[in-house]
Simulated assay, not measured.
Amino acid sequence: MTILVAGGDSAIGRAVAAELERRGCAVAATSRRAGRHPSLDLAKPPTTWEVPDASAALVAAGIGSLAGCEADEALARAVNVTAVAALARRVPFVLVLSTTQVFAGDRPHYPADAPVCPANAYGRVKAEAERVALAAGGAVLRLGKVLSPHLPLVQDFVATLRAGGTVEAFADMVLAPVTLDQVAALAADILVGRLSGIHQLSGDQDITYADMARLMAESVGSGQVRETSASERVPAHFIQAHATLAATGGRTAPSSVEAVRMVLAQTLSLPGE
């Protein structure tokens, strides 16, 4: 079985490709960078894509930032929706990564079958991409905040705390974090099993960014945390009161607190840390 990973040089793309290879799958990981093959840039015409024969594909590429989608929603739609539809016509099963932002975030533990109600361009575009994947018989994986040792936010918090400095973190903006390893394992399950429909993975509870920073400070044993307000720096329609999703497929939502601790331990064990 060959599985295509579009965006194979992204953090999630690399992690899923590695997990699939660990399970014995053949993986074709694409890149949009010059000189890398197979080449696949969702912003370019499908005639330029190098798409090998594959039984399934993960879309881990595209415009993935709230600000990027807000700046040019039409471009974001072309890359994240129209291009995904073109890929779905060439690969039998497509898994699209999505987000809690397809919901307004006004209540916790949104069920998978709840009507989408995005409050910003990023959520609107992702909701459209979901419809494309599902209409083609594929799958959607909605995710809470994905933490990894190489995430700049994590690295910045840890470096500041270890130096005895003060981390400024939002006390009015929440996340329901999961680890990159947890995402890779579930995405691989979906791709190998071709499990169509909507899947959801988030932490079991909302925590603020200040809560996360305090957990890190406790484990590091140094540094301080100063609470700040997201409303002073972040557009209101980006801020959700809740970021948790109801677990799907009979799974239990992983612990938000343990996700932070696991990623912190991985970060502290990196060479040079």
Rank of each mutant, 00 (worst) to 15 (best):
L42F: 03
A247N: 08
V94I: 10
R23L: 10
F103Q: 05
A34E: 13
A217W: 02
P38F: 00
D156R: 15
V79I: 10
F103I: 01
S231E: 12
V178E: 01
C69R: 04
I207P: 08
V158D: 00
A26S: 10
A163Y: 00
A74L: 14
A61W: 01
T82Q: 03
V125A: 05
S222E: 00
A112S: 14
S31D: 08
A28R: 11
A185R: 14
D156S: 15
R142P: 15
E19D: 14
L4T: 11
Q240N: 11
A159I: 03
G144I: 01
T252P: 05
L87R: 07
L201A: 10
A18Q: 08
A139H: 13
H109G: 04
L4N: 08
R214K: 12
V260Q: 04
R33F: 04
P46M: 00
M212F: 06
A114V: 04
P177E: 01
A139Q: 11
T248S: 02
D189I: 09
D9K: 13
P92G: 04
G138K: 14
M173F: 12
T267Y: 00
N80H: 09
S222F: 02
T2E: 05
E130Q: 14
A159F: 01
L175T: 12
R131M: 14
V94N: 05
V146N: 06
Q101T: 06
H242K: 11
S255R: 09
V257H: 10
V79K: 11
P177D: 01
H199P: 12
N80R: 09
G35C: 05
G221R: 01
P52D: 02
E70Y: 02
G197H: 05
L42I: 06
H150Q: 12
S98M: 11
Q182F: 00
Q205T: 14
T208V: 11
E227W: 07
K44F: 00
G193E: 13
L66I: 14
V96Y: 08
A29S: 15
E232P: 10
Q200D: 07
S55K: 13
L20C: 11
Q240L: 15
A243W: 03
A61I: 06
S269N: 11
A88L: 05
V91C: 07
L97A: 15
G165E: 08
P108M: 01
P152R: 07
S219A: 15
L75C: 07
T30N: 09
N80K: 13
E73C: 02
E70I: 04
P38L: 01
T179D: 00
A74P: 09
L215C: 03
M212S: 10
A78N: 02
W49Y: 09
Q155K: 14
A56W: 01
V132N: 05
V146M: 00
V140N: 08
V158S: 01
A253R: 15
C25K: 12
P235R: 03
A185K: 12
T252H: 14
S222Q: 12
E168L: 03
A26N: 05
R36N: 04
A246Q: 15
H150R: 08
V234W: 06
V96G: 07
H242N: 12
L95S: 08
K145R: 10
K44N: 03
L186F: 01
A210G: 13
